[in-house]
Design a protein around this nucleic acid. Structure first.
Lengths: 241, 241
DNA sequence: TTGTCAGTTTGGTATGACTAAAAATAGAAT
DNA sequence: ATTCTATTTTTAGTCATACCAAACTGACAA
């Protein structure tokens, strides 16, 4: 039975597993399989599709690879309805490997700066009253934990996160989440100095002020300076890579 | 309750395939396995690692899923040294599915506009003589194929591509490539009118002029208008999704 | 009610076998 | 000798079976 996959992906796929994958995939997207849990066991798949265990396993593996399933070593797979988050998780995982290339880390951080620079410009020109309020609140939380480096790091991320929400496009928060995930580990091995927190707080404050004055150029300039500063801080932790 | 994915990989990975994958992976990254072709056959893997065929196959599948290998139905897998291109390929594949969500397509296009807006600003402020020359040449090519819609579409992409090269960061061209891949199919089912080509050409021309005048605001404004226009053109082709 | 333990389910792995497509090789035809 | 063709070998795809160990379930005892 030669079955050509409808339209799109790779040219010739006549593998039986692909058939199974197609069905199960649709079943996930349609919501027939809820996001929470429980995916048919390998044996159940065998029964339903009349395929060998080999094929059933392979199908599951493929779904896992696409981020539609999550599998723990000896557990039943869990359904993971894909959102933009899933995408960036997969992306992040790959990036993790790509940064082995010379300068890779820096290039990714460059992109982060690029994106966030665009976002603060947007904030300066389009931020609503609500956006401003969110920024203010985040800034206040920065101040509250300025003595606790651990907490400050979290509130620092939260402040930046606000910018990613302003366009009202879910892709942006996903991107931010991806960046944070990626940096988290390294950020932690960075020396924590309250003076540094204060410095970052002041940077945030000045950026917010530029936004309040509706001055995108100034906001961008300050943001770039702030992130470049941050980059210098974490840069060394990537040395061993 | 969310799982804290902060520390490294998942704790319990006792799968034999993972061991094999780790070794082969390193072998690819180290360059021991050249990008071109030839990956150990399943039997060879069996021999080297003393594992069953099941495990060998699974290992290969995982590598394929990560984009390090490319497998055609009945061929020997070929090594694909991962670049940023690989990342965006995987990303693109997933995005393909995500656009099933309401408004998903528009959101992605929004991101494209956002990114490119930032790029033209950069071009207006930082473009080198070479960059300008590339833009000029691309624009001339636009003019040359203004009567041939098929060719114009290609040269149109080329013009935009130049912006992605200006930062000198390979991530950007990869992003562009990803966008194009994603749009290609839909763009094709769009009515082609020479007058539209002319309109696009003029937009490109005006953008280049703004860049030559080192006026980022104007360049961004024109770019946004240009892409919004383009969006209106393709928008309808996504209706059935 | 709670903790323990045996039975069941399920994924992980190993074998062995068979098919069909691809690659390699030998052989025939020019 | 070169080219084309037929045959052999290799290899991925699939199936069936079996066993183990971890996870899950539920009955039973404390």
């Amino acid at each position: 039975m030669k079955q050509g996959s409808s339209a799109g992906a790779e040219p010739p796929t006549d593998r039986a597993a692909d058939r199974v994958v197609a069905v199960l995939e649709r079943r996930i997207y349609s919501g027939e399989l809820h996001d929470g849990q429980m995916f048919p066991s390998e044996r159940e798949i065998i029964g339903e599709f009349s395929v060998s265990r080999t094929v059933a396993r392979e199908a599951v593996k493929i779904l896992v690879g696409r981020g539609l399933l999550e599998d723990r070593p000896r557990h039943r797979p869990i359904v993971r309805k894909p959102g933009y988050g899933t995408v960036t998780n997969v992306l992040g995982g790959l990036v993790q490997h790509l940064i082995g290339q010379p300068g890779g880390v820096g290039q990714i951080f460059e992109v982060r700066i690029f994106v966030e620079a665009g976002l603060v410009r947007l904030a300066a020109t389009d931020a609503t009253k609500d956006d401003i309020r969110h920024l203010r609140e985040a800034l206040n939380r920065n101040w509250d934990c300025i003595e606790d480096s651990e907490a400050f790091y979290e509130s620092d991320k939260d402040f930046h996160a606000v910018f990613y929400t302003i366009p009202g496009n879910p892709v942006f928060p996903a991107i931010h989440h991806s960046f944070c995930d990626w940096l988290d580990g390294h950020w932690r091995m960075m020396p924590r100095l309250p003076e540094r927190n204060r410095r970052n707080f002041e940077a945030h404050e000045s950026i917010l002020n530029a936004i309040l004055e509706r001055d995108p150029d100034q906001a961008e300039r300050l943001l770039r300076s702030h992130l470049n500063d941050a980059w210098l801080q974490v840069k060394d932790t990537f040395k061993d890579l």
